[in-house]
Simulated assay, not measured.
Amino acid sequence: MTKAQFTFCIPNLNKIDFLPACINSMLVQDCQAWRCVFVDGYSTDGSWEYMQQFANDPRFTLLRGKRQGMYADWNYCLEQVNTEYFYFLTSDDLCYPQLVSKTTRALDHCPDIDACHFKFDYINEYDQITRTYTDIIASEMPIYLDASNYAHRRAALFEFLMHCVYRTIYRTMTSLVLRRSLISQVGPFSTQVGSAGDYDWTMRLTMHTDTLFIPETLTAWRKYEGQATQSPHSVGNNRRIFEIAKANLCQIQQGSEASSFGPALDPTLTLSFLSRDYEFALYNQIHQATNIANALDALLQATQAFPLHYLQALLKRLGLSSRQSCLTKNVLAKQLIQNNQLQWPPLPLKLSSTEDTTPSTQATR
C-alpha cells in the first residue's frame, strides 16, 4: 500500500442521509494515498453503525467525539493528523475525484505555501448543482472574480484584510487543503465562539502563510432545508465576528507578526465594515423589540459596544441597498490594498511546465 500523505478529517453528527455519498466521494479519489479520521459526536441516526463496515480498513480511524461541542471534535481530528496534508470534509458534503491529486501536486510545487484554496459548487440534497463558484463569487466577493480564472498566490496580509471586509472569504472549510505544519502554528479551533470557530481559525491561518489558489472545482458544499446554521444577521453572530477580527488585529499589532505584515494597520478603517454590520444588528434588535424591557436591554448592549454617535448614524446608513453595500465593500477592499501596498490582481502562477492552470470542467451531476 502506498504510504498516505493526505488525511481526510470527517467530523459527523447525525448526517446518515448524506454520509454514504460523502464517504463514497473519498473512496473514488484518483489518488489513493490517503487516510481518513472519522470523529462521530454520538450520533443517534445510525451514522456510527454505518461506519463500522470500515473498522478493519487500515486507512480508517473511527473515533467517538469529546461531547464538548462541534469544534472540540474538529480539534480531535487535528490531533490524529500524521500526514503532510489534511482536509476537513464535513459529512454532508462531497469532494470530487481529483481533490487529493490536484491539491497535493500544487502544494508540492510551492513548498513555502501551506494552504491551497480551490473552487466549490453549492449542491442540494439530491446532489444537484444549484450554484457555481463563479456565481457565488460574482455576487458575494466580486474582487476575487477575475483572479479565480487562473492559478495564483495571495499574500497573507491580503487574505487577513479580506476577512475583515468579506468575512468568510473561503466560505467553507471544505475549499481548503492544508499542510500539517499549520496545526502547531495556528493552534486548535476555539470552542468559545459558537459557529464562528472556523472564521477565527482561518483568520489566524493567514498570519502564518500565503494562500495558493488553483482554478479547479474540487468539492461541493451541500445547502438544504433544515440545515443547522445561525443567521449571519443576528446580533450574536455579528458580535462574535467583530470581536474575533478585533482580537486578531490586536495580536498582529502587538506580536511578532507585525513586522512581516508591513505597514501599521488602521483599526478603524480595517474593521469598519464588521463594526457597521454589528451596529446594524444592534439597531434592528432595538427597533424590533416587542416590549420595553427587551428594547432597553438591546440599547444597553449597543451603548456598551459603540459610542453613541455610531448609533445616531445608523438611520442614514440603513438606507443602503444590498448592491450599494457590496460596492462599498469593494471600495474598502481596494482602499486597504492600496494603503498596504499590496499586489492585486495577483500575477498568474504556472505550477509546472506540464500542468495547465486554466480551470477544469466538472461534469454536471
Rank of each mutant, 00 (worst) to 15 (best):
C164G: 15
E225N: 09
P215A: 09
R276Y: 07
Y310K: 05
I123T: 11
K15F: 06
R365N: 14
H309C: 05
V81D: 04
T191C: 15
K15V: 02
D200K: 12
M173C: 11
E355C: 01
Y122F: 13
F88L: 08
S43P: 10
L89G: 08
A264Y: 10
L94D: 00
M141D: 03
H287C: 05
A106F: 13
C250A: 15
D92Q: 03
C110N: 10
F213D: 07
R323S: 11
E140T: 13
H208F: 08
W74A: 02
L13Q: 08
S322N: 05
K334G: 04
R365T: 09
N284V: 02
C110F: 03
F38T: 00
P359W: 04
S360A: 10
S322Y: 06
L13A: 10
C36L: 10
H117A: 13
Q304G: 06
I169M: 01
I137W: 15
T44D: 13
Y166K: 07
D45E: 14
A138E: 01
P188W: 08
T354R: 07
S47N: 04
S101W: 06
I143G: 06
G236S: 05
N294R: 07
E279T: 13
T328H: 15
T191E: 07
F242A: 02
Y150F: 01
L218K: 07
Q254G: 11
T132F: 01
Q338M: 02
R239Y: 01
A295C: 12
A155P: 07
L327K: 10
T290P: 04
L176P: 12
H208W: 03
L157G: 13
G46N: 04
F189M: 14
W34V: 15
R180I: 07
L176T: 06
A21P: 02
L314C: 10
I23S: 04
Q128V: 07
R167K: 11
S322L: 05
S195A: 14
Y96C: 08
S352L: 07
D57C: 06
T219P: 14
Q5E: 15
L347R: 13
T191I: 08
C116Y: 11
L13F: 12
R323D: 14
L62Y: 00
T211G: 02
A264R: 15
L212Q: 10
L19C: 03
Q254V: 11
L157I: 13
H109N: 08
D108G: 05
G197A: 06
R64D: 10
L27R: 07
H287M: 12
Q128I: 00
F88R: 15
H309F: 12
M51G: 13
S260V: 14
F189Q: 12
L94E: 11
T134C: 02
P267K: 09
C9S: 09
V235P: 05
T132I: 06
T270H: 05
F6I: 04
K223C: 13
L89R: 00
A155E: 14
K102P: 05
P345G: 10
N248L: 11
A156P: 03
K3V: 14
R35D: 13
A72R: 02
